Amino acid sequence: MAWHDYKKKIKRQFSEFLEIPGDVMLDLPKIVLFGNIKIFIENHRGIIEYTTEKVRVNVMEDEVAITGENLLLRNVLPDELCVEGKIKSISFL
C-alpha cells in the first residue's frame, strides 16, 4: 500500500470515528445538482477547461467533467463554483 493510500485510509477511519463528514475531513468534493440546469461544486482545485459545451474541474486527485449546452460559470470562488445551463452528463475522470 502506497503512503498516500495509507494516509487516506487513516483519515477516513478517523473521520468515521469522530463522525466528521467526509467532505470536511478528507477534503472531498461536494457536488450538488439541481435538476439538469445547475450544479454546485465545493472543494475544487481549479478549472481545467471551460467552453459552452464542456467544463472540466480539478477536484482532489481527479477531475469532474460536465457536458451540456450553453454552460456558464457562475459564482467562481476559491473553493466553490456553480455551472448553469442544460447539463447532459457529469463524469469523474
Rank of each mutant, 00 (worst) to 15 (best):
A2D: 08
W3N: 09
K7A: 10
K7L: 07
K9V: 04
K9H: 07
K9I: 14
K11A: 10
F14C: 06
F14A: 12
S15A: 15
E16R: 13
F17K: 12
L18V: 07
I20F: 06
P21S: 05
G22T: 12
G22S: 13
D23R: 13
D23Q: 11
M25K: 12
L26A: 02
D27M: 06
L28M: 11
I31Q: 03
F34I: 15
I37V: 11
K38H: 12
F40Y: 14
F40A: 13
I41K: 00
E42A: 14
E42K: 15
H44P: 09
I47L: 09
I48Y: 01
I48W: 02
E49H: 14
E49Q: 12
Y50H: 15
Y50P: 00
T51R: 10
E53C: 05
K54D: 00
V55D: 03
R56H: 03
R56Y: 00
R56F: 01
V57T: 10
V64N: 02
V64S: 04
V64I: 15
A65G: 02
I66H: 06
T67C: 13
G68C: 05
N70P: 02
L71K: 04
L71A: 03
L71Q: 03
L72T: 00
L73K: 07
R74W: 01
V76Q: 06
P78A: 05
P78I: 07
P78C: 02
D79N: 10
L81K: 07
C82I: 09
V83G: 01
G85H: 01
K86W: 00
I87W: 14
I87E: 02
K88C: 02
S89N: 15
S89T: 15
S89K: 10
S89F: 11
I90K: 10
I90H: 04
